[in-house]
Design a protein around this nucleic acid. Sequence first.
DNA 1: ACCTGAACACCGTTCAAGT
DNA 2: ACCTGAACACCGTTCAAGT
Lengths: 184, 184
Amino acid sequence: MRYHRSDVVARAISVLDEYGLESLTMRRLATELGVQPSALYHHVPNKQTLLAAVADEILLRGKRPRRAERWDRRVVEICSELRDAMLAYRDGAEVVVTAHTFGLGAGEPAGQLRAALRDGGLSEDVVDVGTRALLHLVFGHTVEEQMALQAASAGAINHAPGGPADFERGLDLVLDGLRARVNG
Amino acid sequence: MRYHRSDVVARAISVLDEYGLESLTMRRLATELGVQPSALYHHVPNKQTLLAAVADEILLRGKRPRRAERWDRRVVEICSELRDAMLAYRDGAEVVVTAHTFGLGAGEPAGQLRAALRDGGLSEDVVDVGTRALLHLVFGHTVEEQMALQAASAGAINHAPGGPADFERGLDLVLDGLRARVNG
DNA sequence: ACCTGAACACCGTTCAAGT
DNA sequence: ACCTGAACACCGTTCAAGT
């Protein structure tokens, strides 16, 4: 069988979702595709790049239309989409956050947040600080939430971070600060 | 030579600081101590536990006396100490954040933040949301900042997150939201 | 262009045996 | 109690050779 890069990425996502990140090895993925490990390197230069492509694809699959008019509602929309996209696959948050940490792909959410904050009339400095704060909040919350979900499904009872409600309450904390800085 | 657990942890930190997290392997650490890899398992049950102990020790070494009276100034103090402690060692932020993600050690900063927010007269719900938001902000910011520092020292020019000023501006965003909720 | 086969240079961890 | 020596079951990546 002959594969393309997109086949490799797609299969990587299904291995990730079914067996988790620790099982997503180049060798395991090759076996899953019925191919030698070395064959993967015709489609992808290395594992890091593959994981970045997986992160991008996870975000792409989670895309939704923008509905909100007000800038602060749009921020909530963007952040919720981001959270939902990451939660849709096992270890999705971990993969997306790691890729973002290493400066690979996943630059789109940041761009959309920046645009929303600029629409709100915030100064360029505040746009910078606010975008970073929002991203860190979404990433941190979602990694923690997914961790708790997986721990819970493995039998452990834990003081979970709570679902979308707790998420939006954290967001609102930062949004309050940002609203106070409009035309500041 | 006969070692104790604390020797192993201390040496792990110096390997981390000098060669980075990717070089901190059990085998490398063993070589550094002049011992067989298997000998390490007399002091530590596995690598994950060792890394959690390293994270705790990094935070311990960064401890400073509390000076601030007002609860919101104390939050800044706690968060700044946390950031400085992680920045003090190469890949320190990565190690501390990973340990925290897996629910290992590093529970102290959360406890101190909770106490400060309670002193501010915030409701228990807001204390929960606020503590998590602050931790995610500090962790996210510091990992990003340390990444940029290391990239810069490796020659790359990058739109860095900025030093303590940008850090405190992000913190202030959340603190504004929290101040607005006192007796709310 | 895409893949195989074989190798290189590593990992974390276990366990019988020594002192 | 602490360590050695040897092994087990893996990794990511490279590269000559095949079709």
